[in-house]
C-alpha cells in the first residue's frame, strides 16, 4: 500500500508576531514615563569651619520675598534686572559672592527662578561664579 507523503511547510509562521510586538508596545507605553530628568545642578560646598568668613558688605545679597518680590542689597528689583545690577560689580570682582536668601514663606519656585537667572548669566556675559544659598542653620551659625 502506498502511503501519502506528508509535506512539511517550509515557511516560518509569523502571523502571531504582530500580536506579540503589539503587546510589548503596550507594555512599554504603559510603564514608560517621560519623566522630567533634567534640572539645575547645585554643587554643595563642603562644610569647612576653617573657611574664611565673607563679610556681608563684600557680597551681593539677593532676597526672595513671598509673592515673587525680589530685593538686591535691600532694594526692590525686577527679576530680569538682576544681571544688569550684578554686571558692574562682577566686572570689578568676578569672584564676588552672590548670596540668595529666600524668606521662609517665599515659594521654592521663586528661589529657583533667581538661581536660574544667575546660572544663565554666563550666556549673557555676566558670569556669576560664586553663588551661595545658605540654609537658615548656616546663617545662624556663621552670620551672627
Amino acid at each position: 500500500m502506498k502511503l501519502p507523503k506528508r509535506t512539511v511547510s517550509d515557511e516560518v509562521p509569523t502571523s502571531s508576531m504582530a500580536d506579540i510586538t503589539f503587546l510589548l508596545i503596550i507594555f512599554f507605553m504603559v510603564t514608560n514615563t517621560f519623566a522630567a530628568t533634567r534640572g539645575l545642578d547645585f554643587a554643595v560646598p563642603k562644610e569647612d569651619k576653617s573657611t574664611q568668613t565673607i563679610e556681608k558688605q563684600e557680597s551681593v545679597l539677593l532676597a526672595v520675598h513671598p509673592g515673587g518680590r525680589f530685593e538686591a542689597d535691600g532694594r526692590a528689583i525686577e527679576l530680569d534686572k538682576i544681571l544688569d545690577y550684578l554686571r558692574p560689580k562682577l566686572e570689578r570682582d568676578p569672584l564676588k559672592p552672590v548670596i540668595i536668601r529666600p524668606d521662609p514663606d517665599a515659594s521654592y519656585g521663586d528661589m529657583v527662578r533667581v538661581f536660574d537667572v544667575l546660572r544663565q548669566g554666563k550666556d549673557k556675559g555676566v558670569e556669576v561664579r560664586n553663588i551661595s544659598i545658605p540654609t537658615q542653620r548656616e546663617i545662624e551659625q556663621f552670620w551672627y
Binding site: D41, V44, V112, F115
Partner: peptide, 11 residues
Amino acid sequence: RASTIYLLSDQ
C-alpha cells in the same frame, strides 16, 4: 555631606 544636588525643573 552630599556633593551634588539637582533641582528638578521643567523647561
